[in-house]
Computed example of a mutant assay.
Amino acid sequence: MSVSFENVAVKYLNAKPLSSGTRKEYRRTVAKWLAWGRGPTIDQIGRSDLRDFLDWVYEKAASDGGSNAGRTANKARENLRAILSWAWEQDFLEKLPRFPLSKPQRDVAGRHYLTKSDLNALYFATYALEQPRGWKQSLTVGHYWRAALVVFFNYGVDTGTVFQSASFHEPVLWRHVSWRPEPPSGQGRDSRFGWLYYRRVKTKKQFYRPMNRVVKTHLKSLWSDERQPGQAVFCCGSSRPNEQFQRLCTLAEVQPKQDIETGEEKPWVLKDLRKTCATYYDEHMPESSIEILGHSVGGVTYRHYAHRDPLAFKAIMSLPQPTAFAALSQGFDGECPCCRRRFPQA
């Protein structure tokens, strides 16, 4: 029984836990397919049909005055590939068609990750952060921010996983931190520094990650016998952590990111730390960021049969850390590990 591409796309969106922005992109691709008007049923789609459709998307984007028609066509190509791959797994078509090559495009994203010198500057600038109004914690707000920067860099977690800025976010609680070497899930090898559990905001996927020496040292610095298991680990004293992070960037004198096409300067946000994490993991151990960040991957074998936990374990335990992150584990709290200079409010 033949099924239209539009109906398969609807089934795909209903089956996948995608964000609202990603769903809008897929719907735009489906709308372009319908506007093209020459698409066959899902089981009859061939390479020539895909090539003609992508050429039409490219030409239409160029004629409409788009500044990067190649990127528009390649985005439609990615969406088509994801839908057809899922349709093949669900037996809507017997054979996955070959896709034409990507269109040449101009990459205008610029640098969306922080360098290690930027991270060092941010870490030391936390000593100069002022306490929020009504702050009643025994530790300074800088203590929490230093630990948060370490967790962001090592795990690429979502902002809501560290700082609960919305009611539906599930932050890291003290019961999610295990100092025991045995894995809480009962699978995998022991970690001498303990384990950390968290859940992704978008997909709700659960993760049990080993802690390395730097992560354990910073979480231990926040621990006290008065902490309750249901208490959140991180506290920034504000419901808008991005504003506090931008204040931290100002104190660290980190230059704002710049759009290389328009020249417009944009402030750094906490989500950029997730991109920073992906950049350094792929630089240290290729393909490891897919598992560390919990990205969806293509291919039945890779998803269901390849055992990727050892890759994530090895990547986390061996990731080179910024110099400032190692200061606390070396006993230099409040001091630069290279010159031993003291920092404000240390």
Score class of each variant (00 low, 15 high):
S2C: 03
V3Q: 05
V8S: 01
A9I: 02
A9Y: 01
V10G: 02
K16Y: 07
S19P: 01
S20G: 04
S20D: 14
S20Y: 05
A35V: 06
P40F: 09
I42L: 15
Q44P: 02
I45G: 04
I45D: 06
G46L: 07
D55M: 11
E59N: 13
E59S: 13
E59K: 15
S63D: 03
S63E: 14
G66D: 08
G70T: 06
R71N: 10
T72D: 12
A73G: 08
N74K: 06
K75F: 08
R77D: 02
E78H: 06
Q90R: 15
D91T: 12
K95W: 07
L96Y: 11
P97A: 07
R98G: 14
F99I: 10
F99N: 07
F99V: 11
L101P: 08
L101A: 15
P104K: 15
Q105D: 09
R111L: 10
R111M: 13
L114E: 06
K116E: 14
K116F: 09
S117T: 14
S117A: 15
D118W: 06
T126D: 09
T126G: 10
P132R: 06
R133M: 09
R133K: 14
Q137K: 14
L139T: 09
V141M: 02
G142F: 02
G142C: 09
Y144V: 01
Y144A: 00
W145G: 10
L149W: 02
V151T: 15
F152R: 04
F152M: 12
F153Q: 03
N154G: 03
N154Y: 00
N154V: 12
T159A: 06
G160Y: 00
T161E: 12
S167I: 12
E170V: 10
E170Y: 03
R180A: 13
P181Q: 06
P184K: 03
S185T: 15
S185I: 06
G188Y: 04
R192L: 13
G194C: 07
G194I: 01
L196S: 01
L196M: 05
Y198W: 06
R200N: 02
R200M: 01
K204W: 02
K205Q: 13
K205E: 13
Y208R: 03
Y208A: 10
Y208S: 08
T217W: 03
K220P: 00
S221V: 05
L222E: 09
L222D: 08
W223D: 07
S224P: 03
E226S: 15
E226F: 07
R227A: 07
R227T: 08
R227N: 13
R227P: 04
A232P: 03
G237P: 00
S239H: 05
P241L: 07
N242H: 07
R247H: 11
L248M: 09
C249G: 09
K257C: 09
Q258V: 15
Q258N: 05
E261W: 04
G263C: 06
G263A: 11
E265N: 07
K266E: 13
V269C: 08
L273N: 00
K275C: 04
K275S: 14
T276E: 03
A278V: 12
E283N: 10
G298H: 13
G298F: 10
G298R: 15
V300N: 12
Y305F: 10
H307V: 13
F313D: 00
A315V: 04
I316L: 12
I316N: 01
I316M: 08
M317T: 09
L319G: 02
P322I: 11
F325G: 07
A327W: 08
L328R: 11
S329K: 11
D333A: 15
G334K: 01
C336I: 09
R342K: 14
